[in-house]
Design a protein around this nucleic acid. Structure first.
Length: 573
DNA sequence: TGCGGCTATTG
DNA sequence: CACAATAGCCGCAG
C-alpha cells in the first residue's frame, strides 16, 4: 500500500476542497496535496481516511455529498456551515456569512454579487479572495467551479482558517462547555443527513400502492380520469344535501364547508377534524366529509404522485434533509419522511434478508429539562423509566395531569385546568421552572438565547412592529413560548444527534441509519446482525448520556430508549 | 406569482 | 390544541 503523501495525524483537521471540473486540494498543518483530477483525488481521500482518520474540514455538505456519492463514508468531519449556524444562529450560512461570522465582521452588510460579476471575468490582478474590508469576495467564490488548482488551494486554506477561528469562538463560550463537542456532533449529523439522502428509506412499493388504493382506488389512467375519480369522491359527500343547495359548494374551501354544515343545521367556528369528530352523529354529511378529507389527503399529498416523485426504482423513499432547522435546530426532512401517516407505515419494509432495528428515546424533553436546568428533584424523578409517575406522586395528582402539567410548562401553556398542577410544579421543581421562565422572559424581551450545546436562538431578528398594545403583548408572549421551548427542544435535538452519530460510528458494516425522527432512529440491518445492532444502539445511548453528564458535572439524569426489531416499521410497538 | 389562512400529518 | 416541522389548496393582492 502506498504511504499517504501528506503527513497527517489521526484526528487532525484537514481541509478538503473539491470541484469536479477542477480537481481537489487537501490542506493540513504540515502539508498540501493537490490533484488536478477529482476522481483520483477521491481515491486519495479514501486512502487518507483509512490510514489516518483525520477530521475533514469542508465548507458545506456539498463536499460531503461528493464523497458519499463516491462510496466514501468519512468518520470525522467539521462542517463550517453547520458550525456557523450553531454559533451564530440564523438561516443563511453561505461562505460569505460563514466567513464573516468567523471573523467577527458585521453580517448586516455583506458584499453582494453585482450583475457585472456574474457576466464578466474579474480582473485577477486587483483582488484576491478577501476584500480590503475583510469580507470574502463573492465573485471570487463564484468562480471556483471553473478556476484552477491554485484557486482551489486558497479555498481549502481559507476553510482551515475559518475552522481555527470557529474553534476559538467555541472555546470562548465559557458558560457552554459542551459547545465544541456539539460542533463536532452537529457536523457529523450534517454528514449523516447527506447519507440519509443518498441511501433513502426502504419502501415496499406494491404494499404502498395497495394502501393508497384502499383510500382512493387504483391508479388513474390520466389526468381526466383522475378528475373524474375526484368528482366521484365529492359526490359521495354532496349527495347528503338537497340538489338545489349543492351549487357552488367546494369541499376544498373551508368557508364553503362551513356553509355546507350550516345548511345541515351545524354551526361551527372552524371545520377542523377534531371539532367535527364530536358531531359525527348530528348529520350523515359530517361522517362523509371526514372520510372525504382522509381520502383527499392521500390523493393530494401521499398518493401515486408522491410515490412517483420520491421513490426511486430501487424502492427507496428519498427526501432532502436539513440537519439543524428551525428554532431549535432539529433535523427536518421533505418528501413526507417526518409526517408519514400511520396508515402508510406498513409500506416501510426492510429489504429481503434485512430487518429494522427501531429505537426511540423515552420522555426525552422532560429528561433534558432536568439535565439542562440542573434540577436535583426532577433529575431524581428520571431514575424511573416513567418519570411522570414520581412527578404525579410528588404533586398528588394523576399521572395524566402530571404529564400535561410538565408538557404545558415546557410549551408555555397559560390556560386550561392544569393551573393547580402548575403551582405544584413550581414548588416541587423550582430550579427547572425557573430555568424555563428565565428563558421565556429573555425571549419576550427580544434577547437572544443559547442552548446548552451552544446553539444561538435568535430572538432579536425578524421582529415585527405591532400595531396596538394587545398585538404587541401577544407577540411578546408568543416569543416567550418560542424561546422557552427552544431551550428544551433544542437541547433534546442536540442529544438526539449525538446519539445518532455515535450509532452511525459504531454500526457494523452493512447496517445503516435510514431514518431520524426527532427522538426515534430506524436502522436497516442484515437479519443476522439484528441483536448486535440493538446492543450498539443501546450502548450508544449510554455513551451519549455519559458524555453529556461528564461535561455538565451537575445532576445525574437517567435516559431510556425502547427498541424493537421488525420487518415493517408498523410492527414496532 | 407570491403570501397568509386553513387543514392534515408527524414528533 | 400550548411547542416544532412539511405540504397541499384556496382566496386575495399585486
Amino acid at each position: 500500500m502506498e504511504p499517504s503523501p501528506i503527513d497527517v495525524r489521526p484526528g487532525e483537521a484537514l481541509a478538503l476542497a473539491i470541484e469536479p471540473s477542477v480537481g481537489a486540494v487537501i490542506v493540513g498543518e504540515r502539508g498540501v496535496d493537490r490533484c488536478g483530477d477529482a476522481g483520483a483525488a477521491l481515491a486519495m481521500v479514501e486512502q487518507i481516511e483509512r490510514e489516518a482518520a483525520p477530521r475533514w474540514v469542508w465548507w458545506s455538505p456539498s463536499t460531503a455529498r461528493l464523497l458519499v456519492d463516491a462510496g466514501i463514508r468519512p468518520g470525522r468531519c467539521w462542517d463550517l456551515e453547520a458550525v456557523h449556524r450553531l454559533i451564530h444562529g440564523g438561516w443563511r450560512a453561505d461562505p460569505g456569512v460563514t466567513w464573516a461570522g468567523a471573523h467577527d465582521l458585521d453580517t448586516t452588510e455583506l458584499p453582494e454579487m453585482t450583475p457585472v460579476d456574474l457576466f464578466h471575468v474579474r480582473d485577477e490582478t486587483t483582488s484576491g479572495a478577501v476584500r480590503s474590508d475583510g469580507h470574502l469576495d463573492p465573485a471570487w467564490v463564484a468562480e471556483l467551479w471553473r478556476a484552477d488548482v491554485d484557486h482551489l488551494t486558497r479555498w481549502a486554506e481559507l476553510a482551515l482558517d475559518v475552522h481555527r477561528r470557529q474553534t476559538d469562538q467555541l472555546a470562548r463560550l465559557a458558560d457552554r462547555p459542551a459547545a465544541a463537542a456539539t460542533a463536532r456532533s452537529e457536523s457529523a449529523a450534517a454528514l449523516l443527513g447527506v447519507e440519509l439522502e443518498h441511501d433513502g428509506l426502504p419502501l415496499d412499493v406494491d404494499e404502498a400502492e395497495r394502501i393508497i388504493a384502499t383510500f382512493i382506488g387504483p391508479r388513474p389512467d390520466d389526468a381526466a380520469h383522475e378528475r373524474r375519480l375526484a368528482d366521484e369522491r365529492d359526490e359521495v359527500v354532496l349527495r347528503h344535501l338537497p340538489v338545489d343547495l349543492r351549487d357552488g359548494l367546494d369541499l376544498r374551501n373551508p368557508a364553503s364547508v362551513k356553509s355546507l354544515l350550516r345548511r345541515a343545521g351545524i354551526e361551527v367556528d372552524d371545520t377542523r377534524a377534531w371539532r367535527l369528530e364530536r358531531l359525527r352523529d348530528e348529520h350523515p354529511v359530517v361522517d362523509a366529509l371526514l372520510d372525504w378529507r382522509r381520502a383527499e389527503r392521500i390523493a393530494t399529498t401521499f398518493g401515486y404522485r408522491w410515490l412517483d416523485e420520491h421513490v426511486g426504482s430501487d424502492g427507496r423513499l428519498r427526501g432532502s434533509w436539513s440537519s439543524a432547522d428551525g428554532a431549535a435546530g432539529r433535523m427536518t426532512a421533505t418528501a413526507g419522511l417526518h409526517n408519514l401517516p400511520a396508515d402508510l407505515r406498513p409500506a416501510i419494509a426492510a429489504e429481503p434478508g434485512h430487518v429494522f432495528v427501531r429505537a426511540d428515546l423515552g420522555q426525552i424533553e422532560p429528561r433534558i429539562l432536568a439535565a439542562v436546568s440542573g434540577d436535583e428533584a426532577l433529575a431524581a424523578a428520571t431514575t424511573d423509566d416513567d418519570m411522570y409517575a414520581p412527578v404525579a406522586h410528588r404533586l398528588g395528582v394523576s399521572r395524566d395531569v402530571a404529564k400535561v402539567a410538565v408538557l404545558g410548562a415546557m410549551y408555555g401553556q397559560t390556560t386550561g385546568h392544569g393551573a393547580a398542577a402548575r403551582r405544584g410544579l413550581d414548588a416541587a421543581y423550582p430550579v427547572a421552572m425557573q430555568y424555563l421562565s428565565d428563558a421565556a422572559r429573555a425571549a419576550e424581551a427580544g434577547n437572544d438565547l443559547r442552548t446548552r450545546g451552544g446553539r444561538a436562538v435568535r430572538m432579536s431578528a425578524g421582529r415585527v412592529a405591532a400595531e396596538d398594545e394587545r398585538d404587541r403583548r401577544s407577540h411578546a408572549a408568543a416569543r416567550g413560548r418560542y424561546g422557552r421551548n427552544a431551550m428544551v427542544q433544542g437541547a433534546a435535538a442536540e442529544f438526539f444527534k449525538t446519539w445518532a452519530v455515535i450509532v452511525r460510528a459504531r454500526l457494523p458494516r452493512g447496517s445503516n441509519i435510514v431514518l431520524c425522527l426527532h427522538d426515534e432512529l430506524l436502522v436497516h440491518a442484515p437479519s443476522a446482525d439484528a441483536s448486535l445492532v440493538a446492543t450498539t444502539v443501546d450502548d450508544a445511548l449510554r455513551e451519549t448520556a455519559h458524555r453529556w453528564l461528564s461535561l455538565d458535572h451537575r445532576v445525574d439524569v437517567h435516559f431510556v430508549a425502547e427498541s424493537s426489531t421488525v420487518r415493517r416499521w408498523s410492527d414496532a410497538t
